[in-house]
Every structure is written in structure tokens, then in C-alpha cells.
Amino acid sequence: MAGKGIHIEGLKKRYGSGDTAVDALKNVNMQVAPGEVVGLIGPSGSGKSTLLKALGAVIEPTAGRMILGGEVIYDNGWMVKDLRALRRDKIGFVFQAPYLIPFLNVTDNVALLPMLAGIPNAEARSRAVELFKALDVEHRAKAMPSQLSGGEQQRVAIARGLVNHPPVILADEPTAPLDSVRALAVIRILNDMARKLETAIIVVTHDEKIIPTFKRIYHIRDGVTYEEAGEGREFE
């Protein structure tokens, strides 16, 4: 079923070759529907970052199949040519640290992405401000990133991940620097946005505070994924 969302089949990734080769991903299978937020959990060295990089189109897998937002981007050795445009149009990234551009104000940090896609400045900025309303950082729209609290920065980073309405969002430990109230708030925002914008979201996490909120969780161990039902607890 190659609909929208994320669809991964038998994905493998080998780093290096010969004696020093490392099979970081051995057999990864994942399905994330549009509007769904799933957790990805695994011990250190299990292949989480490698998987995010493959999904984020910054490294090329060795075998398997990847379909993002209805488009085949990798199929057993074949990969889409323009990875830059693919990342810009299909994938939103949210990192553990916000990684905002320090010399752009909050609005332009977010508006830069639609601008890069050729959208006029005014429209790009109004899209950013729109998201700020939903994320409750509207009042900080003109500030520089260094003037924001950690939680505000993280919400701006989430806005940046969402602003191009990508079919896929990859979030790497997005709640690590936050307290439990704010961590849950971030997860709620991701769930809301996923529903509203039909986005498939993968959240890599160790965070005990948020693990119970997922309806479905993928465990990864030694480069192999196992699916598990989560608690799907409401977070009020």
C-alpha cells in the first residue's frame, strides 16, 4: 500500500566494506499513515540515527525500498536524483537541539524554508506567523533566537519543520531538553499538526515522559525493527 505517509520495506544500510563493514540497518520495516505520530525507540548503537539519515535523504541505503509522501525515493540501489529538493519539499526536521540560524530572527528562521522553495517573502512570513499562533510563540516572532527560552526555541524549530507542509516529519529527541509539561505540550502539538496537515511523524526518543503517548512504537535493535502497540495515553 504505497499511499501517502511513510512506507519502508526491508531497508538495509552497510557502512564501509570488507573487514570493517558495519551493518547499521539490517531489516527495517515501517509504516506510518498520514496524521499518525509513531515512536522509535532503541538502545545506543541500534541504528536510530542511521535510519533517520536514510529517511532524511542524507545518506543512501544499501538495499530495500523507501516511499515518502507517495513518492518512491529509494528502490534497491536506485535513488531520487535531487535530494536537496526532496528534503526541502517532503521532509521536515526537528532536532534535539533547536539549531536555529542565529543571525535570522524567529520569523525568518521559519520563513526561510518556503522562501527557499520560491515562495514570496511576505507569504512565507505569514505562513510562519500562522504556525506561531498555533504553537503559542506569536509574541516572540520578531525576536532573535538567542533571546528565546529553550522551550520557545524548540517550538520555533517545530514550526520550521512544519512550515512547508511536508508529508513527513522526522523528530530526533525533540523533548530531551524540556520538562515533562513542556515535553507533553510538544507531543500534543505534533499530534495536532499531524492530524491537521496529514503529516506522518516519526519521533526518535528515550524520553520516558512521552513514550506512553504513542499509539504505536517501533523498537529497533541491532538494525532490525519490531513493531509494538503503545499505550496511546491522552496527555491532559
Partner: peptide, 15 residues
């Protein structure tokens, strides 16, 4: 790091 982020979000090398 900013350059890595800019590249990740699809900024052209030329830019």
C-alpha cells in the same frame, strides 16, 4: 552547524 542545517533544509550550494 548552521551551514549543515541550511543544507539539510534544502539550501543550494550556490546560495
Amino acid at each position: 552547524r548552521e551551514i549543515a542545517v541550511l543544507k539539510l533544509i534544502g539550501t543550494k550550494n550556490r546560495t
